[in-house]
Design a protein around this nucleic acid. Structure first.
Lengths: 218, 218
DNA sequence: GTCATTTATTGACTCGCGTTCATTTATAGG
DNA sequence: CCTATAAATGAACGCGAGTCAATAAATGAC
């Protein structure tokens, strides 16, 4: 009988509705002003119902983060389907990351939330935590793969193992993307304006410098 | 009469005591578990008294952040007193930044707090906000100066204006430092271990790559 | 269709914490 | 001393996360 399965599907659908609501509030109000009551209201359920689908507020936000990391990984996978040089793939990954943050600021802030969680012992019990971490690891693996391909095809020099270069690329692009995010979403952050720099200039300069550092001399 | 001045000194001393208390709690419990009651307790005053010296919790944390940014700037200024090549100064700034985060994680988390504040409209009224922002701008200027010196003395190539390179250096080192911070302070963040990388290796690789990108060809 | 049982939903309640304020206490000047 | 001003206090408030006993809905047996 398909009753049990239908129930599971139904439950998943409701959970998804709640995540949609949470996402839209995250987008318009930001993490600080995301309240469970607002989410319940927007999802047209009671506050108590939320807690049937999510263990707590962290779990809810990590539910969004799960979507976020998954989407980013899908985008990265698309890049790796191309057969361009590894160096070009790396550049494309960076570009995707930047655009991703621009297009989905609510996803980016949920990922920041994940980063901050690892501190306070644990995230106060959330099943999504492990899933998010796995997704992040997969994202990292995709970066490693791009770089490894670059080393193999000779477009990236092999001064460092692929994993180390990937971590470096991860860290630095994280920093650049953060600045870019602040520029776009924080009213009072006008550093780029002050030095008369366009946003894509920042990215291009980053890629230029990085390129000088990792590209094989041809 | 020196009564008025003594009162001002006295007030500043108390404020400082409260900040000390807040700092130590921030260090041992982290931002999430920093409560005004705890701070009041540790500073041996009532909760209400805190609000005579700080406008609200944000203001208190930004008070710490003011110390944090000031200390970092002092460290940077020390570097600039040397007359080594600009490129070496930049490297030294990066190293200082990294060690700073290692030695004063509570300061670093207060700076993260400042970064996150700029979102929610404003930081909910805090006189320290402006001061912190000014300090950050001064820190940036110090980076610009190091790079400009490098361009002038020929150790850094002049593909980009100093401000743009500084922003790039700022962003990327921010990213690297963040990873480093997570590695040290977050129990479950074991990315470095997983790929068998030492922390100083990450920094050295960063500087190597960056060096290739910005050093003048000699 | 009816009923018993399991499952889902609800909103009033608790609780912690940031913030306020009327009251009390300390200090300064005359 | 006495009055006026400033500082300190902790009870009280509001808001939002999380809980739970009561209620409603769905399911399966007959």
């Amino acid at each position: 009988m398909g009753v049990a399965e239908r129930k599971i599907r139904e439950k998943e659908r409701k959970r998804s509705t709640m995540l949609d609501a949470a996402e839209s509030i995250l987008l318009e109000k930001g993490l600080d002003h995301l309240s469970m009551e607002d989410v319940a209201g927007k999802a047209e359920v009671s506050k108590g119902s939320l807690y049937q689908y999510f263990q707590n507020k962290n779990d809810l936000v990590l539910g969004i983060c799960y979507r976020a990391t998954h989407l980013l990984n899908e985008s990265f996978k698309e890049v790796l389907e191309s057969n361009r040089s590894g160096l070009m793939l790396v550049r494309e990954l960076g570009e995707r990351y930047l655009n991703y943050v621009k297009d989905h600021p609510q996803y980016y802030s949920s990922m920041k939330f994940l980063d901050n969680l690892h501190s306070s012992g644990v995230g106060g019990e959330s099943d999504y935590l492990e899933l998010c971490t796995q997704n992040r690891q997969e994202g990292f693996r995709l970066m490693v793969e791009a770089i490894q391909r670059g080393i193999d095809d000779g477009s990236i020099k092999n001064d460092f193992p692929a994993e180390q270069l990937a971590l470096l690329f991860w860290s630095t692009s994280h920093g650049v993307v953060t600045i870019s995010y602040m520029h776009q979403n924080y009213e009072h952050f006008k550093l780029l304006e002050r030095i008369g720099m366009q946003e894509n200039e920042l990215f291009n300069a980053y890629m230029h410098i990085l390129g000088c550092g990792i590209a094989a001399n041809t």
